[in-house]
Write a protein that binds this DNA or RNA. Structure first.
Length: 188
DNA sequence: CTTTCGATGATCT
DNA sequence: GATCATCGAAAGG
């Protein structure tokens, strides 16, 4: 059964689920998405909660564009914008299984530990060379490519991590059994 | 294996 | 002035 890219006409929870198993490439470098979290438009934990600001305005742009922000003053984090249009819903890409351009990623990350190369949102952005210049960018070659899964992924589902508000929603999705996750998914 | 903590700066109140 | 969708090193079991 052939799988497709997630339908960005759907909300962030469906898109986050659908992104697992897709391949994300930035200028040809990246890997298979094994972990993603949904941030909805009416979600207290979402940067969009409370309306448009200078930082989050890309979240309110068209679906299938990027929202990139600086976390803790140190780490870039990469999101994909979803419907509803103009409401600020997005999916945070949290971990990849490295497949393309491993040498480049090792150089950027300063490690050759394959397992930790893209294990966490800050690590993903660093490995792929993502920074503020990608904020608001539209998905499409050559800079930003998203390829569909080659097989039906089996999922693990858990609560989002690293947040203090609205932490109870089961909006963290992962490829079951992957050893490239930022953290294990707690059993339901 | 786990928990704790410092780095570091933009953002928002 | 407080918070923060993080990371990695260090210390403890």
């Amino acid at each position: 059964m052939e799988r497709n890219l997630p339908d960005f006409a759907l909300g962030p929870v469906e898109v986050a689920r659908g992104l697992i198993g897709c391949t994300l490439l930035v200028h040809g470098v990246g890997g298979k998405i094994v972990e993603a979290e949904a941030y909805d438009f009416d979600d207290e934990a979402s940067h969009s909660f409370g309306g448009v600001t200078a930082r989050n305005k890309a979240m309110f742009g068209p679906p299938a564009t990027a929202y990139v922000y600086l976390s803790y003053g140190l780490h870039w984090c990469f999101n994909l914008v979803c419907r509803p249009v103009g409401q600020g819903a997005a999916v945070l890409v949290r971990a990849l299984e490295p497949t393309h351009g491993v040498n480049a990623m090792e150089a950027r990350r300063g490690t050759s530990d394959l397992r930790r190369l893209c294990a966490g949102p800050g690590c993903v952005a660093q490995a792929l060379g993502v920074d503020r210049t990608f904020d608001g960018a539209t998905i499409g070659p050559p800079a930003l490519e998203l390829l569909p899964p080659t097989a039906e992924p089996e999922l693990s589902i858990g609560s989002r991590i690293g947040i203090s508000k609205a932490a109870n929603h089961p909006w963290r999705f992962a490829l079951k059994g992957s050893r490239f996750l930022s953290k294990p998914v707690k059993p339901v």
